[in-house]
Computed example of a mutant assay.
Amino acid sequence: MDNRTRFLHLLKTYDITQKKSAELIASVSGRPCSVRTVRSWVNDPEKKYSVPCPDYAVANLEKAIHYMEQYVMKRRAEIEAAKSGE
């Protein structure tokens, strides 16, 4: 599976918009990432403004998703602990 396909799969699977993916990549990588850049990565490869999706984009989006999942699991555990302590 190429990077473009992996990136699109992540967006669809986790219901992430192109705008949100740009924000997530920028926050994890420390590099600027615009919506226009993301659009060029997911654009049809035959289009004039298509750019191959780089490895770092997929890796950082995966990392951001992992961080979010860890946070959600931690918050659920805290909520459950608070409920059982009542």
Rank of each mutant, 00 (worst) to 15 (best):
P32I: 01
D2W: 02
P32D: 03
T5C: 05
T37A: 11
V38I: 14
R39N: 11
E86V: 14
K74H: 06
G30N: 05
V72H: 05
V35R: 06
I79V: 13
E23L: 13
E78H: 11
P45T: 07
T17A: 05
P45R: 11
A22Y: 05
L24R: 06
K12H: 04
S27Q: 12
K47Y: 10
E69G: 05
K12D: 01
K47W: 09
V58A: 08
L10P: 06
A59I: 14
Y49A: 15
K47E: 14
L8H: 07
S84D: 13
R75I: 02
K83V: 15
A59P: 09
A77R: 09
E80D: 11
G30Q: 05
P52C: 10
V42M: 01
A64W: 07
N43R: 12
L61I: 08
Y71D: 12
A82N: 13
P54F: 15
D55R: 14
K47C: 13
A82S: 13
V38M: 05
S34Y: 06
A77D: 10
G30H: 05
C33T: 07
N3G: 10
P52D: 14
L61Q: 05
E62R: 00
V51K: 15
S29E: 12
T37P: 03
T17F: 02
H9Q: 06
S34A: 07
S50R: 14
D44E: 09
N43P: 01
A64V: 09
S84V: 15
E86I: 15
E23K: 10
P52R: 11
A57D: 15
H9M: 01
T17L: 02
G85S: 15
I79F: 13
K47I: 09
R4G: 08
A57G: 15
T37G: 03
W41F: 08
P32K: 04
R36P: 00
A81I: 06
A59V: 12
R75C: 01
I25C: 11
Y67I: 13
I65S: 01
A81K: 14
A26N: 06
A59D: 14
W41D: 00
N3R: 11
P45F: 08
S21P: 06
I16G: 00
S50Y: 15
T13G: 00
T17V: 05
N3A: 11
K20F: 00
T13V: 05
Y49F: 14
K47H: 12
L8P: 08
R4D: 08
D15K: 01
H9S: 07
E69R: 11
A59E: 15
V42C: 02
R75M: 03
G30V: 07
E78Y: 09
K19G: 04
S34I: 02
M68I: 12
I65C: 02
K74W: 03
K74D: 05
P54N: 12
K74E: 09
K19Y: 06
T37S: 10
L24K: 07
V35D: 02
V28G: 02
H9T: 03
R6I: 08
T37H: 08
